[in-house]
Amino acid sequence: MADPDFKVWQCRTCGYIYEEALGDPSEGLQPGTRWADIPDTWICPTCGTPKSDFDMIEL
């Protein structure tokens, strides 16, 4: 069962969703990777928006 503390983040530009529980293996981010542990230089894999322009959302 997923950790209820896992958060979901969304790119303001394109709507790409990063779920901490799922990670994004195509980006080298394993399931369970916390948002805080992703480097600040990381950019949205879909549109290139900086990490700072993501919002935490509830799905």
Binding site: T13, C14, G15, S26, P45, T46, C47
Partner: peptide
């Protein structure tokens, strides 16, 4: 094919609004 990071929707601020 994986990954499949095509640019058909564009990229950056003008990326396709209706992609989803």
């Amino acid at each position: 094919r994986t990954p499949n990071k095509h640019v058909a929707f564009g990229y950056g601020a003008h990326i396709c609004l209706g992609q989803h």
